[in-house]
Nucleic acid binder design. Structure first.
Length: 273
DNA sequence: CCGCCATCCTGTATGC
DNA sequence: TGCATACAGGATGGCG
């Protein structure tokens, strides 16, 4: 559920809280979250003594830059990081705790346990899965029409599904795809092959603009999302269609209707008029 | 190569 | 009230 703007908000908030912290020990309560290395004990050993130099982001992935390693973290639907004093009890849904020399600790909390962590040697993260397959993020310089539109144009899939495909554009999920297509006035079921260059340019521009506005607002709070200070985002006030089923359209006043784009990648909502 | 689908999870909502 | 079922959703890997 956290998409690019929410992950970016977490990155900025968390960096201020943990920059230069030094990891002493790591507790892992749900080992399946740790995807690499295979052995969780090795994961814990490698992290010991590492300091957090920086936090980067690619699409929806957070990348903790340590002295010798990069820790790639995906929050999936409900993953959250919070900072506490080290004597704070873990709660039911805390699955990983990073203890710091300062006496504070960073808890990874994830009700659905879908989040993932991959630890790589420095420099190897970008060319390894999962990052290796991830496409351009709209805030990277490679976010160019001539790079991306050909990939859209050759796909027979619905444009909504194409925009959700992280190998083509990184960072969009259901919320921002729905908002982008509404703003671009492109129907979500239009096939990639049917889109004109003008429409493609419009979609890519609206995607970036929508994400940029959402980052400014601190993201969108739907259900449980908050940043690492427990703060909610404000972009939900700006939503035209996502979660607006039954509400009047902000541009034409007609009722927002919901329909399913596909079983795997559900729901789009839009106004009828 | 391409697209579809199951899988991983559990809290919340809905149906009977 | 309680139980059963549906639903939400990102990325991966397997299949046709």
């Amino acid at each position: 559920m956290p998409e690019l703007p929410e992950v970016e908000t977490v990155r900025q908030t968390l960096l201020k809280l943990v920059k230069d912290e030094v990891i002493t020990t790591v507790d892992v309560y749900w080992p399946k979250i740790i995807k690499k290395p295979d052995d969780v004990v090795i994961f814990q050993q490698l992290l010991t003594g590492q300091s957090i130099v920086d936090i980067n982001r690619k699409g929806k992935f957070l990348i903790f830059e340590l002295d010798d390693y990069s820790l790639v973290s995906h929050l999936r639907m409900e993953g959250k990081y919070g900072i506490y004093s080290s004597d704070t009890e873990k709660d039911k849904h805390t699955h990983v705790i990073f203890h710091f020399e300062s006496g504070r600790s960073m808890h990874y909390h994830d009700v659905r346990k879908f989040g993932t962590m991959h630890l790589f040697n420095k420099g190897e993260a970008e060319r390894s899965l999962p990052l290796a397959q991830i496409g351009t993020d709209p805030f990277e310089p490679e976010y160019l029409f001539e790079e991306i539109f050909p990939k859209i144009k050759k796909s027979s899939r619905a444009i909504k599904n194409i925009l959700l495909d992280q190998t083509i554009i990184a960072g969009l999920g259901n919320i921002y795809v729905d908002e982008t297509l509404f703003r671009a006035k492109i129907h979500p079921l239009r096939s990639g092959t049917s889109l004109t260059e003008t429409e493609g340019q419009l979609i890519l521009r609206e995607a970036k603009d929508t994400l940029a506005e959402a980052v400014k607002q601190g993201g969108t709070t739907i259900r449980s999302y908050t940043n690492s200070l427990g703060e909610i985002g404000m972009f939900q006030q700006e939503l035209f269609v996502y979660g607006q089923t039954g509400a009047p359209c902000k541009t034409c006043g007609s009722e927002i209707e919901k329909f399913k784009v596909s079983i795997v990648v559900p729901t789009f909502v839009q106004a009828v008029n």
